[in-house]
């Protein structure tokens, strides 16, 4: 018997479902980026003979202007892109978390709609500002 698969238009793939899926993807991406950051910091610290505190510093508070590997332009661009990607997925994940909590307390249709407008606008603005700050760092 043929497999039953619904076309995209008939799956009920609404904005809410998209946000649900996006939230799951962002958390997976977050884990991937954290892992990449830690591995990168371990490699960089091994090359420069750094101690454990340096590894933690380079994992979670990377100073993009002062790379331990020297002024490698390509590496700094890559590091900036990695940090920007991390900020974007964290922001996307966090925004949906705020909406989830909001929806527990506000059940009116208009209240929920406005919450989405406000929170998503904030997320876009915050992401753009963060991207700019990271890029010029």
């Amino acid at each position: 018997m043929a497999a039953r698969t619904l076309p995209i238009k008939k799956r009920g793939f609404s904005f809410e479902v998209f946000m649900w899926a996006f939230t799951r993807f962002t958390v997976i991406a977050m884990y991937g980026l954290i892992l990449a950051g830690i591995i990168g910091a371990l490699i960089a610290s091994a090359r420069t003979g750094a101690n454990f505190a340096d590894i933690l510093y380079w994992s979670f508070f990377p100073n993009l202007a002062e790379s331990p590997l020297g002024k490698n332009f390509g590496m700094i661009i890559l590091a900036k892109l990695m940090v920007i990607a991390f900020v974007l997925v964290v922001c996307g994940h966090g925004v949906h978390g705020v909406l989830e909590i909001w929806d527990d307390y506000v059940t009116s249709e208009s209240g929920r709609r406005w919450a989405r407008y406000i929170v998503i606008s904030y997320a876009v603005a915050a992401s753009l500002a963060a991207m700019y700050i990271i890029w010029i760092a």
């Binding site: 018997m1 619904l6 479902v17």
Partner: peptide, 22 residues
């Protein structure tokens, strides 16, 4: 249920704010 043809209608309902995403 392979005999049922209303899956898309139900998934449409479930995709609302009070559906599975809650």
């Amino acid at each position: 249920d392979s005999r049922d043809e209303g899956a898309s209608q139900r998934l449409e309902i479930l995709s609302e704010t009070n559906g599975t995403v809650r």
